[in-house]
Write a protein that binds this DNA or RNA. Sequence first.
DNA 1: TGCGAAGATGACGCGCTCGTCACTTTTCTC
DNA 2: GAGAAAAGTGACGAGCGCGTCATCTTCGCA
Lengths: 216, 216
Amino acid sequence: MSATPAAAAQAAGRRARTKRHNRAAILDAARHVFAESGYEASSIRDVVRRTELAAGTFYNYFPDKESVLLALLEDRTRELRGRLRLARARARDFEGLVGDAYRVYFGFLVEDPAMAELLRRNSGAVRAVAGEPALAGGVDDLLGDLRATIASGEVPSFDAEYMAAAMAGAGLEIGVRMLTRRPPDVEGAARFATALFLGGVAALSRPAEPQPAASA
Amino acid sequence: MSATPAAAAQAAGRRARTKRHNRAAILDAARHVFAESGYEASSIRDVVRRTELAAGTFYNYFPDKESVLLALLEDRTRELRGRLRLARARARDFEGLVGDAYRVYFGFLVEDPAMAELLRRNSGAVRAVAGEPALAGGVDDLLGDLRATIASGEVPSFDAEYMAAAMAGAGLEIGVRMLTRRPPDVEGAARFATALFLGGVAALSRPAEPQPAASA
DNA sequence: TGCGAAGATGACGCGCTCGTCACTTTTCTC
DNA sequence: GAGAAAAGTGACGAGCGCGTCATCTTCGCA
């Protein structure tokens, strides 16, 4: 009975299975520890202690703490970026693009609050380790979309870099506030952010009023 | 000649003068160390080493590392909040309010890039130590202003908490991008942010969709 | 069933920071 | 100028995390 194909397939490579399991256990422990105590304040030992493993075993999987954070971000943001890509492909216009992106992003935060907390608490470390892109899970993609949208003529020109920064920064903060509300209202937060930035884009394209004071 | 009133006043209390000087030296060193290496990764020793002082002397001025960060934030944000208050009092309408606030804020970042870097790198630690308010130097004031403006009827209702979060988050990120440009264009960044949010407010008040009711 | 290899274990030595404290130097007061 | 108080100094012991490594356990395979 130990030889059914399914059991064989699952058991196949007990070594490999344990390896996968241990790696996942370390990542899971790290996610919670980093979220609770902060990345910098957490030691490798803190992570290992949340695990059935011994200290030395950690080094069979990761060379240092930074690698764990990096792997964590890669694992978790791969799906987020995938979903964002999907939403982007589906969007028919700029409004749909922005709205779906925020919906996906806020939904992701609600699904994995530990990850959200980790991002919030350790945005500095995340930036340092992964560079800007990973922070909100695809700010660079966003910037590309904005530039493409401008180039297509659907929307008049504006400073795409500032806009991407504003959308990412506002998204992060709005997301934090959203998570404190019971229940977290993904749709409401997404609508708020979308209306805000669509209106903002419209206003920025309406150059109109020369500013009074200033240098001129 | 050692007895002119000015000289006397300045020299008066050599003890007190050294005390002020040492405290300032510690704070200045901490500002740079925290900005360069990150708050969590920096040790008290790292700060002291940037100083002419001995390790033990530190404890005559601050009980621990956290107190230094707190004092640093208080010292530096006192003036920022003062300036923001001034701008707020001067502003005749909502547009002026938002615009001046961003001008003051971005100007502050340009004046003290080390502080800006510190805020950027250690926003998590700053939040933990000082709570939300100090992050952008008065987000709570901003929230109060938004609520007051809504109450005055100058602007239709919107979710003030989300709006304050969005303005703060976007401001932080736009500020970061602004500092990377040569030369940093305070006025341009302020105009961008102002137009963005004025347009956003207008769009949010022009709701096709029902807004989630803000509870009073 | 038994052997060789992959992997797990946890104690060890090192380096670093912490907060303290006995001692020295500087400043204030009379 | 002398004595006292205040402030500065840096060495010290305790504690902790790091990465390693000799040893033991488990797995894979014949």
